[in-house]
Amino acid sequence: MSNALHKKRDFIERSMLSALAFLKDATLSEECANRKGFLQSLDPRFKTISFLAFLVTAVSLKSAVLIGSLYGLCLLLVFFSRIPLNYFLTRTLLFIPLFSLCIVLPTLFSMVTPGEPVWSFHVLGINAIITRPGVDGALLFVVRIATSVSLVVLLSLTTRHSELLKVLRLFGVPQLFVLTVSMCYRYLYLFATMVENIFTALKSRVGMVSRHQHGQNIVAWNIANTWNRTTQMSEEVYMAMLSRGYTGEPQLLSEFHATLKDWFWLLCALIICAGLFYRGHTL
């Protein structure tokens, strides 16, 4: 069998396993959150509020330079939180700003954003003109998206997901919702592993998931099987909750303890935001 044909036939299996590996790595890995870095040492509540302040600043400022300085601060925090820079940049810069660039592309041209021409060229008999306001607007948009996404990714990388969910309680999200989402998150890993194991078992019996049609059948069967097991397990988990006294209104542990360092960080973050706002206003 040729290599190309083999790859084609393996497509479904590779897609499934890659998706599961990505899910485990992207959403379930807490390796960065467990490192002993600056952001990891902060109380999640204070950290979330400060990052919210940064986000509001990033989306409100109208100067790409000022937003860029916020991005610089974000990279500084990446360094002090002991997160590998290339790992962070791969997660943020490679994909999301690329998509924003696609969105913003039409606004570069005079037909959408009129103004002083910077560069013109002919394409399909049409004279396309890129304008200065168009370039400025696109630059502002891309920098804003890159900074916002970076801030959100940094927050989620340096905070354990369970803590991040608990912070939602600060904003009045009901305890039941927090518990339900936490449980979904907790069982995601279990089901991802289960699906992986099914594929391994299948491979051990039939060698590989062969034909396209056959592969589709296996994926469909897998979905049905996982659905069945999920339903069964949800009933059993509910029983386990009842067994330990759950009566419909869950009580959860509040483990947060603020220190002077947290207050100092929040103060610094607010001063930085206020400074940027002031600078943006006077520009």
């Binding site: 354990r160 369970s162 449980m183 988990v237 759950y246 483990e255």
Partner: peptide, 21 residues
């Protein structure tokens, strides 16, 4: 895996007593 439904071991141990007030 059925019994440990909380996001951390500490919370799983605390779940029962907390429900009882």
């Amino acid at each position: 895996d059925i019994q440990l439904f909380c996001p951390s071991v500490r919370e799983d141990i605390a779940f029962g007593p907390l429900q009882f007030g």
